[in-house]
Write a protein that binds this DNA or RNA. Structure first.
Lengths: 223, 223
DNA sequence: ACCTGAACACCGTTCAAGT
DNA sequence: ACCTGAACACCGTTCAAGT
């Protein structure tokens, strides 16, 4: 534990170390009592910078989104490509920190980075030709699809790391052994389920939504 | 606390009371120390029926899915309608117990009811004309879309109940107040965001996926 | 076989006290 | 202003003991 000068503890360093701690030792290791010492400080010192644990969690989520946003070129002229870039970057950022991602992916962050993401998606909707009510509706489909898939993928990866937990998606090892007479379809498709590429799935779900946006927006398109 | 005979504590009663307790007092009230007395029993007695808290949680999730499945008519001949019925029933079951739903919606349950859901969706894929690898791929899009939206909606409702928490999706109250120069699109669309009907959104996302399934399956359709 | 009660090893958060 | 240390009110889980 490095010695610490008095004013040297910052929110951003706490977030960074918390992220590392949770990723290295698992989400359940993310406690003030372990985080303090990891920062070279008393467990309660962190509470001088974050009101409570939830505020720390949301800040960590914001950090993941910031990382994703940094990879997106806002000058990219094609709105579909802009959404793809955002989606892939978000997926990468969250999957790179799966154990933390599962803790924050389903949360509404209400932080800077989230607003920027919303603005980016809404900008794409507008360029696709969507306005008002319809823009809001399709925005939600896009945003929630991104959010949902990201959360899902993060869960899969986190579970892969936490070999201890009984949770999981080991279709090949578990589902194949089910009684074939009661679950004939699962039996049939099980070998393919285990080899489905998650990145391809993510792209596919994304394209379905973008197709819908394009179809509905084509009347008023600006490009 | 009703007096209890010795062998009278069952898994199904524990699940039922746990569901009620969590729904009435919030997810964080779902502890063995509170659940025991609610059942008229010592806190640790529940551990005689569930290995640990996680096993109890998965059993609660299974219970929600059972409720949903009971509403689906497996004899419905139209595969799209079967998926719609399943999706709506799942949505209803989870939204009816939002505080519990957020705890279990993103989990892989590996219980009876989950297998039945998978089998049902895969059956629909087969009837749509999808086989093997493609059936597996589109199954995942359908299942994950259902799962993700259910989790999302449950979160929104749970947050609505937990007025205490800072979390939420109060677009109308919060986002409108953002600096318009930095977030012009949010400013424009904010009023519509708050009035988007979630059930419609759910249906829309679902239809997009069903359209994709129908398009890819039309070659080998069985009907 | 099923349940209890004490004990163990943890939590987040508050708050008076230190520097 | 920032940090510490003790204290408070909780957790899940284990285990010897009871019936």
């Amino acid at each position: 534990m490095a010695k610490r000068e008095r004013g040297s503890l910052t929110r951003s360093e706490i977030v960074k170390v918390a992220l590392e701690l949770a990723e290295a030792e698992g989400g359940e290791a993310l406690t003030f009592r372990r985080l303090g010492p990891a920062l070279g400080v008393a467990p309660t010192a962190v509470l001088r910078h974050f009101r409570d644990k939830d505020e720390l969690l949301l800040a960590i989520g914001n950090q993941l989104l910031e990382t994703a946003l940094a990879e997106v070129d806002p000058a990219e002229p094609d709105w579909r490509e802009r959404i793809r870039a955002l989606s892939r970057a978000t997926r990468r950022a969250f999957v790179a920190h799966p154990r933390v991602a599962v803790l924050v992916a389903t949360r509404t962050l209400r932080q800077e980075a989230e607003f920027r993401v919303v603005e980016l998606i809404l900008g794409a909707m507008a360029q696709a030709g969507l306005r008002g009510r319809e823009a809001a509706s399709l925005y939600r489909v896009v945003a929630d699809t991104l959010l949902a898939w990201t959360a899902f993928e993060a869960t899969v990866h986190a579970v892969g790391l936490d070999v201890m937990r009984k949770d999981g998606l080991a279709w090949d090892r578990e589902y194949v052994v089910l009684p074939a007479d009661r679950y004939p379809r699962i039996r049939e498709v099980a070998p393919y389920l285990s080899e489905v590429d998650r990145e391809d799935q993510f792209e596919l779900a994304l394209e379905l939504v973008l197709d819908a946006v394009a179809a509905r927006g084509s009347a008023g398109r600006v490009d």
